[in-house]
Design a protein around this nucleic acid. Structure first.
Lengths: 211, 211
DNA sequence: AGAATGAAGTGGACATTGTCAACATGATGT
DNA sequence: ACATCATGTTGACAATGTCCACTTCATTCT
């Protein structure tokens, strides 16, 4: 039963903490919130949050994990969960989907790929797992390209996957960090040009998917 | 005169703070050092550091700025400060130089491109300037390519610059974050493959620089 | 030369935070 | 009915960032 809000046990604290944390991150553009602050916002004493997260990093890791899950979901929604007819088109959709997700959810994306967790990332198996699932989507689309004989000679699936991820993540990252003057070109135009560039680089017959 | 270390005025505090901060960052892999800690390490009272940096962020920004300056210097050292004979070779050298700098100075690179400063980046003009100087190196090499008639039809210098930066920064970032299993392939082999991929994508005659 | 100004460092006070230990509450299972 | 254990509470403590008033010293102005 959805609880009497006055009960001794909150019953929903973990979720509330995560939601409030993300809200504060978005509001302020940084990770400066404190655990005690979260406790106050949830009408709970200063130590209650620590029953759910050992420290702030563990909470951030949980947020990042959810971010990967949302991104995977968004990609499947937009591009389907496997190659339809044309694997190159699938790859293109996935790549552009990543950038769009980043622009739509800048703070989650930063959490997922940024250095807030840095080397500590490997301490959170759930997070590692969630990120690998996402990566695998892109890898599979490239495997399909290879099987369909679309890749240039001498290119391994792994190399192309790294190249595609680098391009896509690099663009997202630079856009979010404000390193790129957005100039006149709309983002969608830019996405088209870069997709084209990549496909010229990796596909046998250049020119990318004929859509 | 280089001072008696016992004098009331430290005389060199700013530099010492920066050096010690970077040392702590490298040691711990995060930005958890405190200002008071830096003060103790420099044999100075807890408020002295604030005469040089308004807060921790300003200190981090200063470190990032020096990082950009070092990277520019490294690139010029390795690749020269302008196109020698072949602009495509220059571009290739610069791109690979960025990745190598990132791998050599992972913590500085994270500081420069990571989200420690995030949106606050624009608050530090010196940092913005230093980063633009670095970016300009790559842009100039691409302008030279364009002038030499090497670029494919329909590709603007700006678009190619964004593509090249994205690829190069994305790779560096993913490598440092540990998102890529390094697998068998040595990094240098990977760099060659990705360079090749990019050049196939942007150059008229594919195949990249003939070196 | 001597005074004045201001940059750099000191010292103390205070609210806030993370952390630890002991305790209270209530849901769950046998 | 009772024991157990996850969840939340309470109180204490050292460390931190921040504010303010004070000191030291180098530079500049007259």
């Amino acid at each position: 039963m959805p609880g009497p809000s006055t009960s001794y046990h909150h019953g929903n604290l973990r979720r509330v903490l995560l939601d409030n944390a993300l809200e504060l991150i978005v509001e302020r553009g940084n990770y400066s919130f404190t655990m005690r602050e979260l406790a106050r916002k949830a009408n709970v004493t200063h130590n209650a949050p620590y029953r759910h997260f050992a420290d702030k990093n563990e909470l951030l890791a949980a947020l990042a994990e959810e971010g990967f899950e949302q991104m995977s979901q968004a990609l499947v929604d937009e591009c389907g969960s496997d190659c339809g007819l044309d694997p190159a088109t699938w790859l293109k959709c996935l790549g552009q989907g990543v950038v769009r997700f980043a622009l739509r959810n800048p703070f989650q994306y930063r959490l997922m790929f940024g250095d807030a967790l840095a080397d500590a990332r490997t301490d959170y198996p759930g997070l590692m797992k969630a990120s690998e699932v996402t990566f695998l989507l892109l890898v599979r689309s490239i495997q399909e390209c290879k099987q369909a004989g679309l890749l240039r000679e001498g290119l391994s699936v792994n190399e192309v996957a790294i190249g595609a991820w680098s391009l896509v993540h690099g663009l997202s990252s630079l856009l979010l960090a404000g390193h790129l003057r957005q100039k006149n070109e709309t983002t969608t135009h830019l996405l088209e040009q870069l997709s084209h560039m990549l496909f010229e680089g990796i596909l046998k017959f250049g020119d990318g998917p004929r859509v």
